[in-house]
Amino acid sequence: MSSHDHDELDECVRALESVHAFLHNELLEADADMIRHHLHACERCMENFEIESTITEMIQRSQVPAAAPVTLTSRITRLSVRRRA
């Protein structure tokens, strides 16, 4: 294990558990800041993050953007208009 100035085990576990939510911007800003700080301090976690980031990017690029069927879109629009009235 490399030496860190933080509680390596707890912070690394928390960072790695949150990496997917972090990559998808699903964390509160304070939590995202904590992950950023940890990644800058921990080379091993940064390496894992970079791997996960690359995989996520490749998956996103390989997926064809899906649009909702026209019938569903029109049903939702009609429901929205009714609720506002």
Rank of each mutant, 00 (worst) to 15 (best):
L39G: 07
L16S: 10
D31I: 02
D5A: 03
A41S: 14
R14F: 05
L72F: 11
A30L: 07
T54Q: 15
C45T: 02
D33F: 05
R83I: 05
T54Y: 13
V64T: 15
S74R: 13
T71G: 10
T73A: 11
E29Y: 01
D10T: 08
D10F: 05
E52C: 12
E52W: 07
M46W: 06
N25M: 07
R36K: 14
D5S: 06
L72D: 06
M46A: 13
N25K: 08
I35R: 09
L16I: 09
R61P: 01
M1Y: 04
L28M: 02
T77M: 11
S3K: 13
P65V: 11
D7Y: 01
M58E: 15
H4Y: 12
D5K: 05
A67L: 10
P65C: 10
E8K: 05
S2G: 03
S53H: 10
M34A: 15
S80N: 11
H37S: 13
I35E: 05
R61N: 14
A66R: 14
A66K: 15
R78Y: 03
R61M: 13
T77C: 07
H38M: 08
R36C: 13
A21C: 03
T56G: 01
L28E: 15
T73S: 09
E43N: 08
A30E: 12
E8R: 04
H4T: 09
E8I: 06
R61D: 12
L79T: 06
R84T: 07
L27F: 00
A15L: 05
A21K: 12
L72H: 09
P69C: 03
A21N: 05
A41G: 12
R14P: 01
E57G: 14
H6I: 04
M1F: 04
R83Y: 07
L72P: 00
E17K: 15
